[in-house]
Simulated assay, not measured.
Amino acid sequence: MPSAALSTLSRRRWLLAAGAAAVAVPALAQVAVGSASRLRHLVPAEQLEQSAAQQYAQLLQQARAKGALVPDGDAQVQRLQAIARRLIPFTPPWNERARQWQWQVALIRSDEINAFCMPGGKIAFFTGILDKLRLTDDEVAMVMGHEMAHALREHAREQLAKNSATGIGLSLGAQLLGLGDLGNYAARLGGQLLSLNFSRSDETDADLVGLEIAARAGFNPQAAVRLWEKMGTATGSNGQGLNFLSTHPSGPQRIRQLQANVPKVQGLYEQARRR
């Protein structure tokens, strides 16, 4: 068979395999989001999660050395951990790998308005987002659910796959025999995890998935609208410490979209409150 035909056949087989492995939207989901990206399969999930765990540990070690890591006995840390414990049981339908994740929650002293969840369930909040925005528990749950959703939907894995495919001139045909050196490359890419910019569709995805997870856990979905109204107000301030908003832009369209989806999960919230 001519090499060109072999290349076309190989590409089709790869696409079919990637499609078969794509994470489906849970059957009982109330929000409408698409299936997770097929491209993410170019980066091995286990290696990326291991790399994220190492980077997270280094981050906490550095924060501890600077006296910036808030101890576990602190009331704010316990508050974050309690909210996480309510959200975590509702994560596996969005990603089966979440059942095995070793979830962690940390609080770092910083004026930055920021929070994140790395692949594998490694969560960090900065004190600035809690203090400057005076977040209620419901609003914290919306932030945390949003960040969890990025990890569950493997947006970082997808973005790194795009970066790696471009950076090393990936040949799809060569990857059919096993991902070549891409697995090792994925480990090195872990250092980019805190500097990734997600797409507008990724942000919408995380908004809606996080909204549903939080509602199922008994947090008021109306808080998502209030949260982003607060974010919008913060955007109009002096602009200092708004790292969260640089990667999670606020705006009327985002708020309208959340308002349209709150009624879809309101029943889940009310049911959770009756439990």
Rank of each mutant, 00 (worst) to 15 (best):
G121Y: 07
Q61R: 15
F125M: 01
Q104G: 01
L87R: 06
Q76R: 14
R157Q: 15
G120T: 02
G167R: 15
A52Q: 08
L170E: 13
R99Y: 05
P119V: 06
T166C: 06
I88C: 06
Q54S: 08
R157G: 11
P71S: 07
E158R: 04
A45L: 14
H41E: 12
E46T: 05
A141Y: 05
Q61G: 11
I123H: 05
H146M: 02
E154G: 00
A161T: 06
F116W: 15
G34D: 10
A115K: 06
G120L: 06
Q159T: 11
M118A: 15
Q100K: 15
Q102H: 13
R79H: 02
Q58E: 13
S164I: 13
L60C: 08
A84I: 00
L170I: 13
S110A: 09
A32H: 08
Q159K: 12
H155A: 06
R79S: 00
L135V: 02
L42K: 07
S171E: 15
A156V: 03
L172C: 02
M142C: 09
G128L: 02
H146F: 05
G67W: 09
A149P: 08
E154C: 00
R40L: 13
E112C: 00
A98L: 08
S35Q: 13
W101K: 09
H155T: 04
Q62Y: 04
S35K: 12
Q54D: 09
E147Y: 01
D138A: 15
L172Y: 10
P119R: 12
D131T: 04
W94E: 13
L60T: 01
E147H: 01
R38N: 08
M118R: 07
Q100M: 08
Q47T: 13
D72A: 15
W103V: 01
R97Q: 14
P119K: 12
L42R: 10
I88Y: 13
F125W: 05
G128H: 06
T166D: 14
Q100H: 15
L135F: 06
M142H: 13
L107H: 05
R38W: 03
C117L: 03
P89Q: 07
H150V: 00
